[in-house]
Amino acid sequence: MATHAPLRPGLLPRLLTRPTASLSLLLLGGVVLVTLLLPAWLHSNPHLTSSQTFCPPDAAHPFGTDLNGRDLLARTLEGARISLLVGGTGALVSLVIGTSVGLISGYVGGRTDALLMRLVDVLYAVPRLILIILAGFLADPWLQKMLAALQGGRWVSYSKVAILVVALGCIEWLTMARIVRGQVLSLKTLPFVQAARALGQSHIRIILRHLLPNLSGIIVVYLTLTVPAVILDESFLSFLGLGVQAPQASWGTLLSDGAMALNPVHSPWWLLLFPATAMSITLLSLNFLGDALRDALAE
């Protein structure tokens, strides 16, 4: 989006002096690397069923196996891939929408501003999961038809995930829009913006050259905080059976399977523990990173 340096010079070094920030960057990098590289190295198939059901963790299956005898390590890794993908892309969608709405609302002001902000208020008032689920219903048949025409229909099973990404992005932009708008309102009264206007620069140029670079810091902070929020929403929906569909797995579906398998006679704790740990570590390091970025920016 911004062709300029995304962070004010000095922010990254300031960030790295914080032990929690470095640690969470390291953890996050670790999670991403493991998610991308380990499946290729293990040659394990997350969809391969076997007769060894509910097998506790051992050498062959470090995370144990589930109801259908599938290897939980492979499933957790597949879940991580989908959850991270949905979180990252959803946050990017929310970034684009939130920044644009905030910029337009703050810069144009007047009636446009009032209208857009009322829209934000109304969207805040609707329980957001309702919107996501309804968007899925409306768009799914249409997208499936489109995907079926593409390359002999091999992408059809991804339509749910694609809708999830877009819908989550379209819901999670509200906070971003408010914050960007607030910043723009104060930025546009500053002398350098007025000077740019006096020099006869176009509105587009003022927005792109003068406002956006000054907003990039706060945008990055909220982007970091949106990723865990989207991951959380996705796994929440998947937990309810409304997100990623079987046989694909995400952390949410794995946790739902794990919660379902619990009963007083037999509790396969590994089904719950490993996906929960993977998810919590990821969310924790993302939240830490966002916090540290915000503090570093405020310094």
């Binding site: 796994s235 929440f236 739902s256 719950l272 929960a276 998810m279 919590s280 969310l283 939240n287």
Partner: peptide
């Protein structure tokens, strides 16, 4: 606590 969702 924030990073451990209710369904976990």
């Amino acid at each position: 606590l924030i990073s451990v969702p209710t369904f976990v």
